[in-house]
């Protein structure tokens, strides 16, 4: 079983993340730990201002505990979660990073509402958390029916590095799995399938043989990032390496409203 850390806030994004995890939990079993970092700048009534005096910090933690407990109760996550949610204080990214490193989780999950403007996504990739992510991060942007299948996406340079992550975590998910190898070419107005990418496709097939998993389609395509982005819009999960913010891959991932699993570049997959 995989050890998973899920970061929760009392918001819609977290609510969607929980519901998505519950869909996946039917096929892939997790040891799940919820973590919450209270937002001390949150608007609203200040805690511990009544006649019952508490320390401000205790009141914040108490309020956070109640909020997260309500969320978990509402979304039924308490059925899956191991133990009580951890309430950590401090700067969010740093606190999560420390927790991820301390317990060596297998992957991290958070809800993140998809935005048409790519800046939010880029900002996320540029955050300390994602820059130093020690394990794959599942960014749940929407609740999607699993029938839509998995799309593993990469460039000729990265695609073979994504596969081990897929085999490690998602192998058992009984859904259609496709591979898309993107050759970015800004001059192309249409997406074209490359028939001569045989060496790479052979390597992918070798990998699938080794793991006893058959991919439904393996496609190598070229086109502009705008056109290629349309190919990764309708899936239950898109899996990619964590891209550079400035690259084409980041641009196509930023336009996808699907849940995205972003895998670190270097790490043993044992």
């Amino acid at each position: 079983m995989q050890d998973v850390l899920i970061a929760l806030q009392t918001d819609l994004a977290s609510s969607i993340a929980i519901r998505y995890v519950c869909l996946i939990e039917n096929f892939v079993r997790f040891n799940m730990q919820a973590v919450h970092i209270p937002d001390v700048d949150e608007n609203g009534h200040l805690p511990s201002r009544g006649w019952v005096h508490q320390s401000w910090e205790n009141a914040i933690v108490e309020r956070a505990e109640k909020g997260i407990a309500r969320l978990l109760q509402k979304e039924n996550l308490h059925r899956y979660s191991m133990g009580e949610p951890k309430i950590l204080s401090g700067q969010r990214d740093q606190a999560i990073l420390e927790e991820l490193q301390y317990k060596s989780y297998d992957f991290f999950i958070e809800g993140f509402l998809h935005s048409f403007e790519p800046d939010r996504f880029f900002k996320k990739l540029d955050s300390d958390l994602y820059k130093n992510m020690p394990c794959p991060a599942l960014m749940v942007q929407n609740l999607v029916n699993l029938d839509r299948g998995i799309q593993i996406v990469g460039t000729p340079d990265t695609i073979l590095s994504v596969l081990p992550w897929f085999f490690k975590f998602w192998h058992d998910l009984p859904v259609k799995t496709d591979i898309l190898v993107c050759h970015f070419d800004t001059s192309k107005k249409k997406v074209a399938t490359l028939e001569n990418d045989t060496h790479l496709i052979c390597s992918i097939k070798e990998s699938e043989l080794n793991h006893g998993k058959k991919f439904d389609t393996i496609r190598s395509v070229n086109g502009s990032s705008t056109k290629l982005a349309l190919l990764i819009r309708d899936h239950a999960l898109v899996i990619s390496l964590l891209p550079e913010t400035s690259g084409h891959m980041a641009h196509i991932l930023a336009t996808s409203p699907c849940p995205i699993l972003l895998c670190p570049k270097s790490k043993t997959h044992s």
Partner: peptide, 18 residues
């Protein structure tokens, strides 16, 4: 809304647009 539509087996994509 997500609850409402998912009971009808509709899973809407949510997207933020300025």
């Amino acid at each position: 809304l997500i609850n409402y539509y998912s009971t009808k087996n509709i899973f809407p994509y949510i997207e933020l647009v300025k």
